[in-house]
């Protein structure tokens, strides 16, 4: 009962904050509500026993990326603009159509449409070993550094290339 209540509380706050985030004109408000969305999603990850994903979600998105967003917005002082992104009746029409289609699909899923037979609504995923035996980090770390080591290294090289590229692009040519 309490788990169900927590799930509903987290989803409600995630959806509400997401709607507020999209509809605000002030970019700083949008950033703050996006952070609320990340925290709510982290809460849901916690309920799925995905503790590591929950923590990383907050560390990376809540603590690093969103702070950078906020930093840039503050630096450019965009906070006081009152412009709307969505302009005219055409924009509203397109946005509304997408929203109705999305909500319709979701409703169909909850009522029990036949297209979604393969998807399970009950969590029936079993971890190979319980959290007590392995801890939280080991089930992620062990495959990452054994089975997927090549992928990990390639990703590392890709990120390094991206960093070098970013530095090269922002560096003044005269130096």
């Amino acid at each position: 009962m309490s788990e169900n209540f927590l799930f509903q509380a987290f989803s409600a706050s995630a959806i509400l904050a997401a709607v507020i985030m999209v509809t605000r004109k002030n970019p700083v408000t949008a950033v703050i509500f996006l952070v609320v969305v990340f925290f709510s999603v982290s809460g849901m990850f916690l309920m799925l026993d995905a503790h590591y994903v929950a923590a990383i979600n907050v560390i990376l998105y809540g603590g690093a990326i969103m702070v950078l967003f906020l930093f840039v917005i503050m630096l450019l002082n965009l906070g006081h603009t009152k412009q709307k992104d969505l302009k005219g009746p055409m924009g509203g029409l397109v946005g509304g159509t997408i929203a109705v289609a999305f909500l319709g699909t979701l409703t169909q899923f909850f009522i029990g449409g036949s297209e979604f037979e393969g998807m399970s609504r009950q969590g029936d995923v079993q971890l190979p070993l319980g959290l007590e035996q392995q801890g939280v980090i080991a089930p992620i770390a062990r495959p990452l550094f054994t089975d997927y080591i090549i992928v990990l290294e390639v990703t590392g090289i890709l990120l390094l290339t991206a960093i070098v590229g970013a530095i090269f692009l922002t560096k003044k040519r005269s130096v």
């Binding site: 952070v35 590591y52 923590a55 809540g62 603590g63 906020l70």
Partner: peptide, 22 residues
Amino acid sequence: DASIGFLYILAIGSIGVYGIAM
């Protein structure tokens, strides 16, 4: 006694910047 104790500390520590920035 969170199973992610150390990561929790990093996560909460990383949101400390919002108060000052805001």
